[in-house]
């Protein structure tokens, strides 16, 4: 494998990382919002979120990506492959994150929230000071697991022409008639990415370990 081929694989890795990162940045907070709507049984919105979650969970990423790429322009909104990719990854992971946040919220003991209410905390304050600091620690392993699944599902966005790791590897393989080396390198890159993610999770858990154990 040539240096140029290797560099284009690294470039693909950059694309995977940036688009996955953007998808996570969109999907984690959006998932929290959806999870809160479900948890709080917000009238009207809660059933809509439920339908959204089950639809997105049952749509393959490739299909979703094509759908977004071709459907949104028909509504008169210009959308490039990168935006379509971020939306695909973000909307998909939001559905799974919604369930992770929601189960974290459901496990939350109502006792301490009752105490917070009786001490005059408004809903916003309760969320900021009591719920969230405990919730993110409880949800972190599930969220990181979902992030690794997102990275592994990211090759789907190649369908709209984005050259991420896997797409870069197949291209090189097609040019050199030797697909094995680029695929092995691609696999190695995925492994490194995921090891880094899980490592960051472990580090966070260790840094906040004491309070986390108390929750």
């Amino acid at each position: 494998m040539t240096t140029a081929a290797f560099l284009s694989l690294l470039q693909g890795a950059g694309v995977t990382l940036v688009l996955s990162g953007a998808g996570i940045a969109l999907g984690v907070p959006l998932g929290l919002l959806l999870g809160l709507i479900r948890w709080g049984r917000v009238p009207v919105l809660s059933p809509i979120v439920m339908v959204y979650v089950s639809l997105l969970r049952s749509t393959p990423a490739v299909t979703l990506c094509l759908l977004i790429f071709f459907a949104i322009p028909t509504m008169g909104i210009d959308i490039g492959p990168w935006t379509a990719s971020v939306l695909t990854l973000g909307l998909n992971t939001a559905a799974f994150n919604c369930e992770i946040w929601r189960s974290g919220l459901n496990n939350f003991s109502p006792d301490q929230l009752e105490a917070a209410r009786s001490f005059g905390m408004t809903p916003a304050l309760r969320f900021r000071r009591i719920i969230f600091p405990q919730l993110w620690r409880a949800c972190l392993p599930g969220l990181v697991n979902e992030m690794t699944l997102l990275i592994k599902s990211s090759p789907a966005i190649a369908v709209v022409g984005v050259v991420e790791i896997t797409r870069a590897a197949t291209r090189i393989g097609a040019q050199t008639y030797d697909p094995l080396p680029p695929m092995l390198v691609a696999t190695g890159i995925y492994i490194v990415l995921i090891v880094v993610f899980v490592g960051l999770q472990r580090l966070t858990e260790r840094l906040y370990g004491q309070a986390g154990a108390a929750a």
Binding site: D111, L125, Q134, A211
Partner: peptide, 30 residues
């Protein structure tokens, strides 16, 4: 509600806060 103190059967302390932080939480933020 902040004018009324309440003590619960099951304590209902906030587990992510230390003892001192439990005491100062509402006076500072509420």
């Amino acid at each position: 509600r902040a004018r009324i103190g309440m003590v619960f059967q099951h304590f209902n302390l906030w587990p992510h806060l230390t003892v001192l932080q439990n005491l100062i939480e509402a006076p500072i933020h509420v």
